[in-house]
Design a protein around this nucleic acid. Structure first.
Lengths: 209, 209
DNA sequence: TTCTATGGTGAACGATAGTTCACTGTCAAC
DNA sequence: GTTGACAGTGAACTATCGTTCACCATAGAA
């Protein structure tokens, strides 16, 4: 069979491709549910293959597509597409959705990896009060706070001033340190005694539904 | 050796516990890096144990603590603490950080699971334009959009009106449908011909650092 | 029709994984 | 001292895993 394929051949190839894709999804789901990759026999069960050799061929193909990968010890590990905790990134709001649902050309990213650098030092706080509403941080939002970062001027920080905790912009002018709210109804804070910065806000998350 | 332990015994037990904890962390890191659980021999390398039996005992203990688990086939899978993609949740901004870093009593959640319901139908869009700045959605933010949800009045939606894509509040009054910006400098949109709602905004994410 | 690429079967085969057993060394309790 | 728990060693042993080989069946291309 040469390079050129007839019409019927194309149709068959397409259908087969679909089958492989579905099997890849099954494997992905398995990984997500079980927390580990399925063994070859388990993949066999998932895909309805009775021979481990068939599985071996399937895995080889999925490897070629980058769906599956192997580590140094040739053990199966999830490829970038699998492991599921990733979302497709489309363009901007203006661009809207690419009409024919051209997902493939869009890249994909993992929200966790995007939002969290050092997991050990990271915490979530729920926002109450509207002192930062001018910066788009509303009551009820969640802020992601990193205790490990060195606070710089311009950062939004969680700080303890005179016994109370607040979230404000940090502004440093020479040795002077000021905490600025993002709401004109609140006054800037010039800490008298000491200013304990507990962490830097690295991200904000708001959930609607 | 009965229940009561002497002072020196306590000290030793504490130190040993610390050791076990560190080993659990190593395993957790391995899982995160490699995408799979380490084998017993690999755990041995990680923990500095030369005998697989030692590893077996260690694993048994970690199982008891709920750090590790096994599935029906007795294969090692990550316990709830491992697998890492979870962040500790502390109280509110006002409450601030519990002073002595009392992490244990705070619960922990996974950002992905929080923000995404049906992964297949979910996309990320970058916001441009400030027509929703009144609702705390600023240019440069990322919105998480679910195509699968039925848009309800009050939702923020991504819609195509008269050929252009926008993000607005959806307001339904009877049969009438209006798209409301959250910025007084923009006018409400009453779609003439047709209104194609492509998805509902379920969350907003903004990254600072 | 014949040819051939390809998906699939089934069995035989190392290799490795995890279990189990007997044993050592150490340290706190007695 | 003696004793008892307990971390760790090392070596068998078995199950399972993934590879590999020969082979079948199908269906499009020639």
């Amino acid at each position: 069979m040469g390079a050129a394929k007839g019409e019927r051949g194309m149709e068959k190839a397409r259908r087969h491709e679909e089958k492989v894709r579905r099997r890849a999804e099954d494997i992905s789901r398995f990984y997500l549910r079980a927390g580990r990759m399925p063994s070859f026999s388990e993949i066999g069960e998932l895909a309805g293959l009775r021979s481990k050799n068939s599985v071996s061929k399937l895995v080889g193909r999925l490897e070629g597509q980058g769906v599956l990968r192997r580590d140094e010890k040739r053990r199966l590990i999830p490829g970038p597409a699998i492991g599921g905790r990733t979302v497709r990134v489309l363009g901007t709001v203006e661009a809207g959705f690419p009409s024919p649902a051209e997902e493939e050309l869009s890249d994909t990213l993992c929200l966790d990896d995007l939002l969290i650098q050092n997991r050990e030092a990271t915490f979530l706080l729920k926002v109450s009060g509207d002192s930062m509403s001018g910066a788009g941080i509303l009551p009820g939002d969640m802020v992601i706070v990193d205790r490990g970062l060195a606070p710089k001027s311009g950062d939004i920080v969680i700080a303890e001033v005179d016994g109370a905790w607040t979230m404000k912009f940090l502004r440093k002018k020479g040795a002077q340190v000021v905490l600025l709210p993002a709401n004109p109804r609140y006054a800037p804070i010039r800490p008298k005694s000491e200013l304990k910065v507990a962490g830097v806000v690295t991200a904000v998350v708001r959930k609607y539904r």
